[in-house]
Simulated assay, not measured.
Amino acid sequence: MKRYCLALDLKDNPELIATYEDYHKAVWPEILESIRTSGIIDLSIYRTGNRLMMIMEVADNFSFADKAKADNENPKVQEWETLMWQYQQALPFAQPGEKWVLMDQIFKL
């Protein structure tokens, strides 16, 4: 099993942040299925201010490329991503078109 941490910002607006959190209290079943079938075993999102951090525990055969391909071919995932982008904004150093940015581990006990 592997662990990945990713970061993304929300638009710095308390109402938008509250709505974003509400959506994540009842994530669409199709999105949950897409996550599970991709090899993601556990996924958590944390927030401080408008900064998000996602922690993913994945199977050894998990592939970001395969997940992206499956997501691009899934209309419900695309609908969810378009909806969520209303609340999200790219990190200042993200590449064009990049949402969640993979974080580098700098310490482990």
Rank of each mutant, 00 (worst) to 15 (best):
I17T: 05
E57C: 09
M103I: 05
F93L: 07
A68D: 12
E98T: 11
A65V: 13
M56G: 08
K76Y: 12
R36D: 10
I17H: 02
P96I: 15
N61L: 05
S63D: 15
A70K: 14
W100N: 01
V101I: 06
Q88V: 00
L16F: 11
T48A: 05
I106T: 11
Q95P: 01
N72Q: 06
V27A: 13
D66K: 10
I55S: 04
S63N: 06
L32E: 10
E98M: 06
K99V: 05
E57N: 09
R51K: 08
V77T: 15
N13H: 13
L83V: 07
P14V: 13
I35H: 15
A90Y: 02
N50Y: 02
E98S: 02
I55F: 01
G97K: 04
V101H: 04
L91N: 02
D66W: 05
F93I: 00
V27R: 12
I17E: 04
E30M: 14
V77Q: 14
I106E: 11
D60I: 04
A70Y: 09
E57A: 07
D42A: 05
L109K: 10
M54E: 04
I31G: 05
Q89I: 06
Y87N: 04
A90G: 06
I35Q: 15
L83A: 06
S63I: 00
K76I: 11
E21S: 13
K67D: 08
Y87G: 01
Y46I: 09
S34P: 06
G39W: 08
E98K: 04
Q105H: 10
I45S: 01
A68F: 11
T37R: 07
D71L: 08
K67N: 14
D12C: 00
W100V: 03
S44R: 08
T19V: 15
N74E: 09
I31P: 09
T48Q: 03
W100M: 07
G39A: 02
K11N: 10
Q88E: 00
K76L: 11
N13G: 13
E79I: 13
K67C: 02
Y87P: 04
I106F: 14
A68M: 12
K11Q: 14
M53N: 02
E57L: 07
E81K: 13
P96F: 03
V58Y: 13
A94Q: 07
P14N: 12
L8G: 01
E30L: 14
L83M: 12
E15K: 08
W28K: 10
K11C: 06
K99Y: 00
R47L: 04
P92G: 04
F64L: 15
S38F: 06
A94S: 14
M103R: 04
E33D: 07
